[in-house]
Design a protein around this nucleic acid. Structure first.
Lengths: 221, 221
DNA sequence: CCTCCATAGATCATGCATTATATTTTCTGC
DNA sequence: GCAGAAAATATAATGCATGATCTATGGAGG
């Protein structure tokens, strides 16, 4: 697979630029320049930017161009609130659906995570964390909830968690609580543990990111 | 404004086709045919379809085309669950932010709604319902929560509520409960009333729509 | 049953018309 | 004659149409 779907490449590229602060709120995203930078024509670039508008990351001023939507610290907390509610519901739903084998698998993932953390291999920690959550969310079996969760998660830059102080330790701690709830087959405990886990991560990330306190305008696009 | 953004027109058009069942799950959406039907070129059509993929309504099979994503009755209930959580949170946040004037305005909207309902003017009922919610959601002042709510709401076909038996009466009843919570300045009561209102609407809509019980596959796109 | 080829369709590149913004010019009032 | 505003022009970038390329599918032939 050489380069499937150039527009996806554009979306991923620009999303990173925005979330890492290389493109700042209010700035215009020039189609032609992007096309040149990425070595492609403007058509797929425009398509990718339209997709990002759909994600709420860009806004479109007709005949003026695409510009970066404002993102305040409160926005980030709100996004994590959404993530927490969704991940909590998925964990609760997954609880009665997880069989012994799957719970054992989650336990193994967590063991590996602890090991990697001991070795300071944060990239592996982040990968295992991702797998842990993916296993839970798939088990819950709700396409639409998973879709919303994925959308909320897109606001976290790639490979970002490992750079956030305190996150790896928090993850180790929080996952044990989630696992325990699964083993006890207690859906509401699983929900509570998962909600707390996500909000925990959100607080750490919001404190780490350098964002304005609030954007002031209630623009929805 | 003659025809701003053809791709938006495409997205709205196809969204309606899908949600009203004129395009069914698994069917391919042919770009060229759509372009001819709507009297435009294939470029904006493709752009519109990419936007719908971003909404989770279509999926993209590379080099094969766009096809309608499956939507089960459970999916619809899940979407309303999301809607309910978000609308509830927004109502709770709005409660301390609404001033007397805004609450009075909501009361007036509700009075007009009752009147319109008495006259059997369901189109006006739906419009007033929309205004009622919009007022609350704007007052809450969270761009991101509002964005997710809007996205979840897009799965309800336009002018659909008025065709759902029992919805108008349910709305009249439920809105009073929400209003009372606002007047009592009780955020949690407002949340509970709003959650119940949305879930109520969701149950009615799911019962009205003719959808498969479950799609079986856990495809997320 | 496997291979090769024809065809339909998606995907991307390019070009043109349209529109918003910046700049310059012209007009008006003092 | 000069300052400021309004109008006209120039420039730049979007938005759409068209055309070329590439890929996946279905069927004929081995």
């Amino acid at each position: 697979m050489a380069r499937p779907q150039l527009s996806d490449e554009v979306a991923a590229h620009v999303r990173e630029l925005v979330l890492t602060g290389q493109l700042r709120a209010g700035e215009f995203v020039r189609v032609e320049k992007l096309a040149e930078d990425l070595g492609m024509s403007i058509t797929p670039v425009r398509e990718g930017l339209l997709a990002l508008r759909g994600e709420g990351i860009l806004t479109l001023a007709p005949r003026r161009g695409f510009l970066v939507a404002p993102l305040s610290e409160q926005d980030l907390l709100d996004l994590f609130w959404v993530q927490a509610q969704l991940a909590g519901e998925l964990a609760a739903r997954a609880t009665p659906l997880l069989d012994d084998e799957q719970i054992a698998e989650l336990g193994e993932l967590q063991e590996k995570l602890v090991t990697a953390l001991g070795e300071g291999d944060l990239t592996t920690v982040e990968r295992l964390n991702h797998e842990f959550h993916r296993t839970v969310n798939r088990a819950a079996g709700s396409t639409k909830l998973a879709w919303f969760l994925k959308t909320a998660t897109r606001y976290v830059p790639l490979r970002y968690y490992q750079r956030v102080g305190g996150w790896p330790d928090a993850t180790r701690h929080d996952h044990f609580a989630v696992l325990e709830a699964f083993r006890a087959r207690d859906p509401e405990a699983a929900r509570a543990a998962m909600v707390e886990h996500i909000r925990h991560a959100g607080r750490l990330l919001a404190a780490h990111a350098d964002l304005p306190e609030d954007t002031g305008d209630g623009t929805t696009g």
